[in-house]
Amino acid sequence: MKPLKTLLGRSTPTTATLDRVWAGIKQRESARRRWSLELGLGVGALVAAGVVGFVVFGLRAPVDVPAVAVAPVALVGDSSPSTGVRVAVGERAEAWFAHGGVQVSRGVVKVTARVGSGAPLEVTAGTVRVQVAAAVVRVEVMEHGVSLVVEEGEVVVRPMLGAAQTVRAGASWTDRVRDWRALARAGELAEAWAVLGPEGVTAAGSGASLEDQTLLADIAASGGARRQAIGLLEHAIAVEGTDRTERAVAAYDLGLRYVEEGEPRLAAQVFERSIALDLPVALQRDARARAAEAWVRAGEPERARRWLDAPGP
């Protein structure tokens, strides 16, 4: 039996129609890029301020200094003689200073901390925290894990799951736990859930960035821990001062979770909140429709009408 579409030749779109659709896509993407550019300029200004602050105050002042390097770069060196810390960032690595420590999200970073007095420098690399004092260590964040090689001295390694341990010069150590972020970003939520479990999600969610909290919510939801997912998203959107668009997307996600939980009133409220924040244009129309649908389900069609009548992109 031939599919009926063989009879329906008039469903093939014309070139003019496809031109129009593509132009619409480019227009919407361009709007999104404009937003990104504005965000980038804002971040750039913060970055410039951060660099100046870092040079002046050294690592003792917890300032954010981005170091997305395209070639090996000495970030600190002699600019911080009081701590004697040097961080060399490998090609295509991403690392930055935050909260008085070093965060590594990708690639190879070599940390040299010559002075042993005072609190150790904490290097957060993927799922692992490494405390470095009077040591030289090379840390690599790979797609699915973290490894480190201690060249001098010793470091204390605290994996997110499992006990802390000391790694001495000449030894190497590899995190056997796969990087849940990489898994989640690759869409392998079930595997990420298998890595973390409910306790791991709770541990990772504590003090996590907004992006991580939304990833963790996806992971928890995939594992059937819907209330945990909702808790993470509720917390994520409650934190003032974080990026409005990221919060808007988190609110949109939360609305979807409330719908799944049969909570249409709460869903409608957070869909509205997502719209009030800076929800990306591509999601706005959908959020409006969902807000309207949720208000209908909550027994308030008049409030639904507001969203159906509202002009939008």
Binding site: K5, L8, S11, T12, P13, T17, L18, V21, W22
Partner: peptide, 11 residues
């Protein structure tokens, strides 16, 4: 792929 996708969505 857009021609096939749009034809599918039209139907």
């Amino acid at each position: 792929h857009a021609p096939a996708v749009m034809a599918l969505l039209t139907r």
